[in-house]
Design a protein around this nucleic acid. Structure first.
Lengths: 144, 144
DNA sequence: GTACATGCAAATGCTTTGCATGTTT
DNA sequence: AAACATGCAAAGCATTTGCATGTAC
């Protein structure tokens, strides 16, 4: 999911329209692939007088998630955050200072034996690693 | 963290008081160790005329979390949920049907190499496995 | 022209807060 | 008595929804 053109095709195929607000929102996500953006973040990244309403942002974030264009998560304060979805299933290192994310592949399902033991059928899993990223550590050093 | 007495001691030690609402709340968590309860869940589990206010439940859930009596998470709808904290760090199989949780030990940190590679310092991680538990699968079969 | 989208405003739901009163210690 | 807790009511946010209007197709 890299270019506006691919996204355009995908939307069209699903019967949705490619409007100015959608275009602006996608631009923001394309330009911020190393962040998980909340609706409020997105709203503040929009140009001053975009005229785009909060509700429009919410509706489109949801639509994009359903389409598989965006991936969503809920942060520790209960706020939904979104980022462009990669082809492969990834997990994230998440900087609690600046919000930057670093993707890493999903290579282990070590819990499978426990799930089987409990006769539990997995449908999905979520792994998030929180901490401080390199640039925030550097910044912290410089300020001390 | 098993008995009311231990909890009583812990609260006292931290300078808090052991009140009737706290006692009722803890009883609920002791009786529901296989669930992640939201404030709303807890509220509904309280006796009809407990007289305990919503705000009191919120304040105590937070307090208990800070004390390490409860462990908290935010569900996929952004709602905070709590369960008694175990001695050791665990992860959860979470039934999306009934909300039942099954704990399993944390034995892998396979992402360490990625974190080191990115000069990322982990402070915490979260792993949740969603699916359908044995009893919900059984119930589904019986209804079909 | 029709179906989908948007803006606007009101409503919802979870959570927090201020404040006067009540209770534990 | 002092410090912490609680109930009550109001406020705060994120998010959703209804509806009339606008726009892509």
């Amino acid at each position: 999911m890299q270019s506006i053109h691919e996204l355009y095709a995908l939307l069209k195929q699903k019967g949705f329209r490619f409007t100015a607000p959608k275009r602006e929102l996608l631009d923001i996500f394309l330009a911020n692939q190393d962040r998980m953006l909340s609706v409020s973040d997105v709203f503040h990244l929009l140009p001053e007088n975009s005229g785009i309403d909060n509700a429009t942002v919410y509706r489109n974030m949801q639509k994009f998630s359903e389409l598989g264009v965006l991936e969503s998560m809920v942060d520790d304060r209960g706020v939904s955050r979104y980022t462009l979805q990669e082809k492969e299933h990834h997990h994230y290192l998440i900087c609690t200072q600046c919000g930057r994310i670093i993707r890493f592949p999903c290579t282990t399902h070590y819990w499978n034996s426990f799930a089987e033991g409990a006769d539990f059928t997995e449908t999905m899993h979520k792994l998030e690693v929180y901490g401080i990223c390199a640039s925030c550590k550097k910044a912290a050093l410089e300020h001390s």
